[in-house]
Design a protein around this nucleic acid. Structure first.
Lengths: 156, 156
DNA sequence: TATTGTTATACTCTATAACTATA
DNA sequence: TATAGTTATAGAGTATAACAATA
């Protein structure tokens, strides 16, 4: 029934030990990260998802909503709400796609690119605070390992 | 500022590069992990949160709901729903705490401990599939780095 | 007065179904 | 027939407020 010892840091090893479970760690670190970044992003009137969409457009250029949907793995209907918000804040524009009149081309406005750049800088700086106990090498390792797992699981 | 290149598909190149952002990676890997484990857990009639609660009880012994709340960082009202479900499946029992008649002692039933052990074994096995592109050493590194970050951010 | 567990309620996030206009 | 975008709607998940029993 109950295991004899655990410590959360020292010589744990026993059996269950929640704090070492990958699923628990991923959920928890993700939660902590979002909570840590939220205030920094809030001052720009955006959240992580909006920034992610702006990042995708900034990296790959103007795109129909459908392409953003595939890129970010969010639902079509969710994307509508995201673009609504971004357009309302005048960070992106919706234009008819000349090649396919069903589609809308989403582009960053100059203001949008400006906000994106500043928000990203704030995020990056904040991230250093979040990762302050990891060396530069460890930070790079963490990113690399997560990326590797992400690619494994995506291209199953 | 931004790193020059990335891969992911063709020769993407640009600056922002969503797939390298820590926030994006954490969210994505967490999502992929949950999706990967859900079917395995579903066959036991539970989900990751229920297993986490069972793990905590199994590791630390019977506990009042409040202690589980602190341990898992979920809301009191959420915990009520979780314990309701576990009790309904006869995986745990709610007994009056002899020392504090306001509190309930939550204990794993023998059946609960049995399910917990089998479910955990299934999760562990499934996890190897999820992490199949990481060496044993890399898996350990990933866990260690996440744990370190979690502790940093928790004990701010 | 404060705390444990509870209910009712609201709010966010996300997904489903059905519609429109194009292809 | 299928696809891009949209709307309305419903379902999870989670948080807030208020209450009963007890400390």
């Amino acid at each position: 029934m109950a295991s004899p010892r655990e410590k959360t840091a020292g010589g744990t090893r026993a059996q269950p030990v929640l704090a070492q479970r990958l699923g628990y760690l991923l959920k928890r670190v993700n939660f902590l990260y979002q909570a840590h970044q939220a205030p920094a992003l809030e001052s720009f009137g955006i959240d992580g998802r909006l920034l992610a969409v702006m990042t995708a457009i900034s990296a790959d250029g103007p795109a129909p909503q459908q392409r953003l949907v595939e890129r970010l793995t969010v639902d079509r209907t969710t994307m509508v709400a995201i673009i609504d918000k971004l357009e309302q804040e005048q960070l992106v524009t919706r234009e008819p796609d000349p090649h396919d009149r069903r589609a809308h081309r989403i582009s960053l406005t100059p203001h949008g690119e400006n906000v994106r750049r500043q928000a990203q800088a704030a995020v990056d700086q904040n991230e250093q605070q979040f990762l302050r106990d990891l060396s530069a090498r460890e930070q790079q390792q963490l990113r690399r390992l997560l990326q590797k797992v992400s690619e494994t699981a995506t291209t199953r």
